[in-house]
Amino acid sequence: MGGDDGEHRLVVETGDGARIELVCRPGETLLAGLRRQGCRTVPVGCRSGGCGVCRVRVIAGAVVVARPMSATHVSAVARQQGHVLACCVQPDAGRFD
């Protein structure tokens, strides 16, 4: 219940610098949300946090890391700046932004 019923508004910046606004469903990865809304500029690779092709930067909205992201593609510093692998993160169910 609680915050987990709602949809979560996020803004991400893709590799080419474009900003995309998306609505993510609870339990859905950011990558799945982007695809569901027709985004084709974030590639779908391994969907498992290893290949790095789905890397984006979260500009607005809170996410939680649901599975490990390869340190080759997201260093601790990059993570602090909002970089994530879209296949590994989900909207933070406990927060509304």
């Binding site: 391994c46 969907r47 946090g49 290949c51 390869s70």
Partner: peptide, 8 residues
């Protein structure tokens, strides 16, 4: 197919 770390 991919393993849980993205290794094919």
């Amino acid at each position: 197919f991919f393993d849980p770390s993205g290794n094919r």
